[in-house]
Design a protein around this nucleic acid. Structure first.
Length: 182
DNA sequence: TCTAGGATCGGCT
DNA sequence: GCCGATCCTAGAT
């Protein structure tokens, strides 16, 4: 599912306007058997409630007291797994995103906290239906598919506390074509 | 109720 | 590369 999400569009509609990113970097969190996952060991709390619910909804949480992170719930009832959205490339509403990011063009949405800032995603969006444009935050596709050969897998970021799971290659990213290998 | 620590970021050296 | 900001969450008491 994480690989499938690469190249898809994450679209945000708010009173300020429309903005969209093409997903470039994601991480998989594999539920109750994944020591890096918030639901490891079957933890079911108010924070993780949406992760235990229906697939296709947003799980948004706060890290380090300052930043929101967006996840896509992937499996469904009773199987609390999710994909963390870590980065994207602007495809629409770049001026709006630049404004929200105080003009930081070079690092507009290349991190989970930065991405949420750029799209004005907060915990108020926890539970949003990412399959329904009416939610104001949704995922769509425009036909672009990322060849498997261009997807890179690597260990997840910032999960050293998770023991051997810290080395699992569940971080996926891709780079736009160079033109040489088309 | 209390406390430790975190799926980060940006400024500074 | 290092470090502080900042506050919620989860687990312990």
């Amino acid at each position: 599912m994480a690989r499938e999400l690469l190249g898809k569009l994450l679209i945000r509609r708010s009173s300020e306007g429309l903005a969209a990113l093409r997903l470039a970097e994601v991480e998989a969190y594999l539920g109750v058997d994944d020591p890096a996952c918030h639901t490891f060991g079957g933890r079911r709390t108010r924070r993780t409630a949406t992760m235990w619910g229906e697939a296709g909804h947003a799980y948004v949480y706060l890290v380090y007291g300052m930043y929101d992170c967006l996840n896509v719930v992937t499996v469904g009832e009773g199987h609390p797994e999710a994909v963390l959205i870590r980065g994207g490339i602007p495809v629409a509403g770049e001026e709006l995103m630049l404004h929200r990011r105080q003009g930081r063009r070079r690092h507009l949405a290349d991190g989970p906290g930065k991405l949420c800032r750029a799209l004005a995603i907060s915990r108020a969006d926890d539970g949003a239906d990412l399959c329904d444009p009416a939610s104001g935050l949704w995922i769509a596709q425009d036909g672009l598919t990322i060849p498997a050969s261009r997807i890179v897998a690597a260990p997840r970021v910032g999960v050293d506390y998770a023991g051997e799971a810290a080395a699992w290659p569940l971080r996926f990213s891709w780079s736009p074509a160079t033109g040489r290998d088309e």
